[in-house]
Simulated assay, not measured.
Amino acid sequence: MKKSSVGIFLTVVIILIAIIGGAFFHTRKTNQFVHSTTATLFFHGGGSSYRAEDSMVNAAKRAGVTNTIIRADVTKDGQVSLHGNMHRGAINPIVEVNYEDNRQLDFNKHGKYATNVAKLLQKQYGIKKINMVGHSLGNISIIYYMLQNGKNKHMPQLQKQVDIAGHFGGLDFAGIPDAIKQPAGMKLNAQGKPNHMNATYRQMTAARKIYPQNQVAVLNIYGDIGNHTDGRVTNVSSRSLKYLVASRAKSYTEIKFTGKNAQHSKLHENAKVDRALIKFLWQKN
């Protein structure tokens, strides 16, 4: 065989090995995840946008969870428009939710916004089951979606929720309205129940009867950079979620992250957080 022919032959062999190896690696990578039509909705924090969700969403895409990522823009009056390519039956689709009114402190409106997104996904793509991921104020969309729809079997049913840096028990800094301010001296008992509750938390306790029994798996992630706070939200406020949902949840798990990347606004760009939520939401058992 001539040298040129040998060279061509070897080149072809190398290319074939690369293609087969790449296909094997891709199959192996994607096979570790569930293949489901359940849509996962990401909700950003106050004063932010869907861009804050990009790090977590892109980590899921790189891991091989999905190739379907769309955006849901929500106007101040709750009108929803969808952007991007998705088809019925898409595997593990992700929806980055983007609120125009990103500093809204009427928590009932957060529930309305999330409800309208879920309704449109149901109408346009036949979505029947959803997961929800929230950061900071975005967690309010999750729990108020359930307060408004937890007993409605005609709405998309929540399967898993990931709460990151949630301020369920309130916020403890100047300028916060009393209804959502963390009460002074707040402590939790073994069930996560606060000894003092603001008006909003008392409203949220309705979740203890509205969440469907043994349906929703909950992962509660919070950061501690020292002194039991992520620098913005106290750990006691984040951990007060337990009292609201744990008694009816399919499972309830808390994970505390520490170090500089556990700071409030860095948690949604923390690679360890990415791995935890990918494992929880999509990895096969």
Rank of each mutant, 00 (worst) to 15 (best):
I180R: 14
V117H: 02
I143E: 12
K112G: 07
L241K: 07
I142F: 10
Q104S: 12
V95Q: 08
S265P: 03
K119S: 14
G47I: 00
G45L: 05
A52E: 11
F168L: 08
I255C: 09
F257I: 00
N195M: 12
T258E: 11
I140S: 13
K160G: 01
A262P: 12
Q215D: 13
V233F: 06
N198F: 02
S5M: 06
V162T: 10
K2E: 15
A246N: 07
P212C: 00
I69N: 06
Y252P: 06
Y113K: 02
Q191C: 10
G111K: 06
S237Y: 03
G150Y: 01
M86D: 14
I15A: 11
V236G: 08
V117I: 03
M56R: 00
G7P: 01
I221G: 10
M86E: 07
K61P: 14
N214K: 03
S55M: 00
T27Y: 12
M1V: 15
K209C: 07
I91S: 08
S4F: 10
I140Q: 03
T229L: 11
T229G: 15
M132T: 06
K266E: 00
K279S: 13
A184R: 10
G185R: 01
S141E: 04
G169A: 09
E96G: 15
Y99F: 15
A23Y: 07
I130V: 12
V34Y: 09
K76T: 07
T205S: 07
G21K: 05
G64F: 07
G192A: 13
K250Y: 04
Q79G: 05
L16E: 13
Q203F: 01
D54G: 11
G166M: 01
F42N: 05
H35V: 03
E96S: 10
A39T: 02
